[in-house]
Write a protein that binds this DNA or RNA. Structure first.
Ligand code: SF4
Ligand code: SF4
Lengths: 144, 144
DNA sequence: TTTAATTCGGATAAATTTGTCCGAATTAAA
DNA sequence: TTTAATTCGGACAAATTTATCCGAATTAAA
């Protein structure tokens, strides 16, 4: 479904969002621990999210990553996914014909597009804030 | 979404199904041409589908692949996908926690499972026969 | 029986994704 | 000003997926 990089990116964003709600800036090391991901690889992904204005990063001691409080609600999963995996979810298709072309659809097109659109809609309407609440209550998890 | 191998497997199955309805057995070479896929790689995939009783294969001159007419309607996309990608569609999940565990769900679980189930249902109720009709009429395509 | 067409199946190679390493740049605090 | 903590960023390595190659096995037809 999503690439590994994207999975890490989503988990990291959720964790950072949760901490940001309490005005805490978190370090790469802490994030990687909390989401159980390889540190150096996670660094690249966070960097990419920072470049895309999804995260705010600060170097130096007491540095780390944070999300503006206002943005925790405004940022949707679709933003995170797009920053890492690009538009593959929107254009990437069931049978991988070179370019999607509604005029020359593959046999699966109609049925596939329905699912793809629901996924798209779900990503676009789910904010980071939505995903933090369960975590905070201890009923959802980012690692086991 | 699906692996490349799976995409080729689906396209090949649809093409073979279409020809099988006219009692035609088709060769690897012809299939690869019709679905625009690398020949040798396609061979492995067809082989795997044959081992899983989705295709019937015959060696030697005038050999090739075919699907029993009765099976064209009985075979669902889910069978093809399962033979190649395994149960990743059923168990593979939004954030890739090691094992899916409803008791310790990731934050995305509820929203993700809805989509995953719809995909699953679509694959389980779509037969190869369903996918051949448009092809036959020239309104859907396996390559461009 | 010989030949040729074909799938079978293993070894290997190329491409992509995932992951590691390490030094440079930045910055807060000592 | 020095030190140490941190992100930045490029080079590299490992793992996985995708793809190629080639000989063996099978089988229909010449
Ligand atoms: S025709 Fe439909 S399923 Fe095929 S590539 Fe385009 S959108 Fe995807
Ligand atoms: S908790 Fe839900 S989304 Fe997470 S791995 Fe399990 S099924 Fe998938």
């Amino acid at each position: 479904m999503f690439s590994k990089a994207c999975e890490y990116g989503i988990k990291a964003s959720i964790y950072i969002a949760l901490q940001s709600l309490q005005d805490k800036r978190v370090s790469l090391k802490e994030i990687a621990e909390e989401i159980n991901s390889p540190v150096a690889f996670t660094a690249k992904i966070l960097h990419q999210l920072a470049k895309n204005d999804i995260l705010d990063s600060v170097k130096g001691p007491a540095g780390g990553f944070q999300i503006e409080k206002d943005n925790v609600e405004k940022l949707k999963l679709s933003h995170v996914v797009f920053a890492i995996d690009g538009d593959s979810i929107y254009s990437g298709c069931g049978l991988g014909l070179e370019k999607c072309n509604e005029k020359q659809p593959c046999p699966l097109h109609d049925k596939f597009v329905i699912i793809r659109n629901e996924l798209k809609q779900m990503l676009e309407e789910t904010s980071l804030l939505d995903l933090t609440s369960g975590l905070d209550l201890g009923i959802t998890f980012l690692k086991r």
